[in-house]
């Protein structure tokens, strides 16, 4: 008798499928048992003690300070600072430098085209020859020989001065000891209602990049605003921030109603919301109004351990308001004490 192939037998197939599903169920059950301690541990309140939180803040400050120092030491940044300090620069923004205290002249890209070089006696850029772009040849005591090229520039007049750039393509070349370094700057934007509606900007070097995105919508007098920032080096994204806001419109521009944001900086995450529209700027106790309508938390990643909550309070020295971090034990420390760089960011009015 030729034995029938067991695998072809329909009952065996059904039996095996039951068996298989049972095995899977068992594996699943054991996986859950194995994970229970982890789930239990992770469900516990993950909030750092004051000492742990201070250690965490020091780590964050070290990360950011190190990044800012290194960024500041980049030859590309030194070259841009060098150019910015020259009043004779035939570039947009340079002559006005965002000052709002005097009438300004829109930047004329076509009239500015040419090859310029730095005068040897005075710190002035002089046009040497015609060109289809703005080309600046320079060198300085602390920067290598370089060239900055503004290849394209278009702008539109908007409510905020100066003219808002709709298109900008630029390149920086530096002759370093280890060969030529390049930085490219690219920017494209759309404007509506006298305000930026869409922005895509990027700055790229050979191994790093910064990108910024803005999207604004409008429906009658309500709308939304989305901002995104990404900073990376060699594929490692060490700053990633996004902000979603609902906004209201007026003849003066727009104002915030609700703000939600996430900001990953190295191994930390700042996240939260501000119900800006409900905060009363004329309240006798403004700090209480701000704290009642906002929730801003700082976590350390991975593991999402809560370092502290950000609150507004009067400084111990007097009546001046300052941002503080509230630790697990309820104690407050000024943000500037452990994160000096945050003060500048928090005081920016968007």
């Amino acid at each position: 008798m030729i034995r029938e192939n067991t695998f072809d037998h329909p009952y065996y197939v059904v039996w095996m499928s039951f068996r298989f599903s049972k095995i899977i169920r068992n594996i699943g059950r054991w996986a859950v048992y194995a994970l229970l301690p982890l789930i239990f541990i992770s469900c516990q309140k993950k909030e750092y003690s004051r000492e742990e939180a201070i250690r965490s803040l020091k780590v964050l400050n070290g990360d950011v300070s190190g990044f800012l120092t290194k960024a500041g030491e980049m030859e590309e940044m030194a070259a841009l600072r060098f150019l910015w300090d020259h009043d004779s620069l035939p570039l947009p923004f340079a002559t006005e430098k965002f000052s709002a205290d005097q009438p300004w002249k829109p930047y004329d890209f076509n009239a500015s085209k040419g090859v310029y070089s730095l005068d040897s006696l005075r710190p002035v850029f002089l046009r040497k020859e015609e060109s289809h772009e703005v080309s600046l040849l320079f060198s300085g005591p602390e920067i290598p020989e370089g060239e900055f090229m503004l290849k394209d520039y278009q702008a539109a007049e908007i409510s905020s001065r100066p003219d808002f750039p709709l298109k900008l393509e630029a390149e920086l070349k530096l002759k370093g000891l280890k060969g030529e370094k390049r930085m490219t700057i690219s920017h494209a934007a759309q404007v509506s209602d006298d305000l930026p509606e869409a922005v895509n900007s990027s700055i790229k070097t050979e191994d790093s990049g910064v990108s910024f995105t803005l999207r604004r919508t409008r429906k009658k007098n309500d709308g939304t605003l989305f901002l995104q920032l990404d900073v990376e080096k060699k594929g490692f994204h060490f700053i990633r921030a996004d902000l979603n806001a609902t906004i209201g419109y007026s003849s003066m521009g727009y104002y915030f109603k609700d703000i939600r944001f996430n900001m990953e900086v190295f191994s930390h995450l700042a996240t939260g919301f501000i119900r800006y529209g409900l905060i009363d700027p004329t309240a006798r106790d403004y700090a209480a109004s701000f704290n009642a309508h906002s929730d801003i938390r700082l976590y350390e990643m991975p593991g999402k351990r809560l370092v502290g909550k950000l609150v507004l309070s009067k400084s111990p020295q007097g009546d001046l308001l300052d941002y503080f971090i509230r630790f697990k034990d309820g104690s407050l420390v000024p943000v500037s004490e452990y994160l000096p760089f945050m003060d500048r960011l928090l005081n920016l009015k968007i």
């Binding site: 003849s251 529209g277 700027p281 004329t282």
Partner: peptide, 14 residues
């Protein structure tokens, strides 16, 4: 005025 609230009518400043 609404200069510092950028036009938010809920936030008049005397």
């Amino acid at each position: 005025d609404y200069v510092y609230s950028n036009g938010d009518k809920n936030k008049p400043f005397t």
